Amino acid sequence: MPENGSLANCCEAGGRALRPGWPGAGGGRPSANLRPPWVAPALSAVLVFTTVVDVLGNLLVILSVLRNRKLRNYAGNLFLVSLALADLVVALYPYPLILMAIFHDGWALGEAHCKASAFVMGLSVICSVFNITAIAINRYCYVCHSVAYPRIYGHWYTPLYVCLIWLLTVVALVPNFFTGSLDYDPRIYSCTFIQTASAHYTVAVVVIHFLLPMAVVSYCYLRIWVLVVRARRKARSESRLHLRPSDIRSFLTMFVVFVIFAICWAPLNCIGLVVAINPEEIAPRVPEGLFVTSYFLAYFNSCLNAIIYGLLNQNFRREYKKIVLVLWSPWFCFQAAPRGSHAERQQGQALPTVSAQHPIQGDTLEPGSETAARRQTQSR
């Protein structure tokens, strides 16, 4: 079987020799015969589709949270905006560079862009993992520690948590520059994390940046669903857990985001663990198609979250429609806005105050207002 592309990057002289696909390394095209013919068109199609949906979808998520007061007022939705930004950055920088590498059949933008592209790719992946973990912890605290939740996620605390996530992400990427693990892989036309650069570091990356966060997220959602099932089995008067149907849908939505992320990134991380056992022996035996397909899944994940929100969350779906309508026919919306606002004012005047026995059923990704729910419970 042809030599594994990642192993080829760890070539003689400590990885400092010219890599296949780089200008000056035999014309920059010696790796073409190592790659199946379907890789270039398939990867191009995946990247083009992913980039378009990634940019449009994640911009819709960010605009929806900014426009909708119900979505904007909940602290946990800041993690969704952070997750959307993490997915968005790869579509704005690394993906277009990968498309250029496919067009040139090799990396033609120099080592600086290669390192920067691989860094941004890692930034997106690790930041996505940390945000998904933070969202799960947020839901867990709301359900399992509702009394302490307002103190843990106060008005200014959540933005600090988001900044901490991005800071930890940057810190987590710093060791890559000392291990030389950010390099060009000709099999996937990408500057990315090279699994064979350091076996010990690869194991550490998979365990700390994937397995451990996934274990934390699994524990949080398992505890949530155990409490939800118990609360449903008890009478409402006996249960201390008061969750609306919209809260259950929000947990389900983020659980689906977690499951899909795990499915998309598990193959690549499993390959990394297997290769780390013995890079020189195992890396050349990894099927080319399996490795490339694992990257297809990983790239494709960045555009899926916005689709999941639209499919499973009514508020996001409504905001998507409003934003698209404004962009599609801005003059019509500008004329219709005053009439709609007047109709809403009349409807608001005609509606009496909501009874405490029938709370408003919102459909947000953040659980309902804790303070309001607690007041309603005390009034009963």
Rank of each mutant, 00 (worst) to 15 (best):
F255Y: 14
R233I: 13
V217N: 05
V259Q: 04
S237V: 15
H242R: 08
I263D: 03
S239K: 03
F210W: 06
S198A: 02
C220R: 08
S198N: 06
F255V: 10
P213H: 01
M214H: 08
A199M: 02
C270H: 11
A231P: 10
V228R: 13
A204L: 07
W265C: 13
A204Q: 02
H209S: 08
F255C: 11
R244F: 11
Y201A: 00
R232W: 14
V228P: 10
I248T: 09
M254Y: 14
P213V: 01
P245W: 07
L252S: 12
I194Q: 02
G272P: 12
V207A: 01
V257Q: 15
V216G: 06
F261Y: 12
V203Q: 04
M214R: 03
H200D: 12
C264M: 12
I194P: 03
M254V: 14
F258G: 07
I271H: 07
F255I: 08
K234T: 13
V203Y: 01
L211D: 02
R232S: 15
I194Y: 02
Y201R: 03
L273F: 14
L273K: 06
S218P: 10
C264P: 09
I224W: 11
V229S: 15
G272Q: 08
H200P: 09
A199V: 07
P213K: 05
N269C: 13
I248D: 08
R232P: 12
Y201E: 02
L222C: 13
P245M: 00
A204D: 01
Y221I: 12
I208E: 00
W265S: 10
V226G: 10
A199Q: 03
V203D: 03
S250P: 05
R232N: 15
I263T: 09
F193I: 04
L243W: 05
F193G: 00
S239E: 04
G272K: 10
D247G: 06
P245V: 06
I248K: 06
F193V: 05
Y201T: 05
K234C: 11
L243A: 05
I263G: 04
W225Y: 15
Y219E: 09
V205G: 01
V205L: 01
C270E: 11
V259G: 00
I263N: 01
P213T: 04
W225D: 11
R249Y: 03
F251S: 04
V217F: 09
A215Y: 01
L212A: 09
Y219V: 13
V229H: 15
L227T: 14
C264L: 07
A262K: 02
I260A: 00
A231S: 14
L268P: 02
I194R: 00
R230I: 09
Y221S: 02
L252K: 14
Y221L: 06
L241Q: 02
P213M: 00
L273H: 08
C220P: 08
Q195K: 08
A197H: 03
Y221M: 03
S218F: 14
R249T: 05
A262R: 04
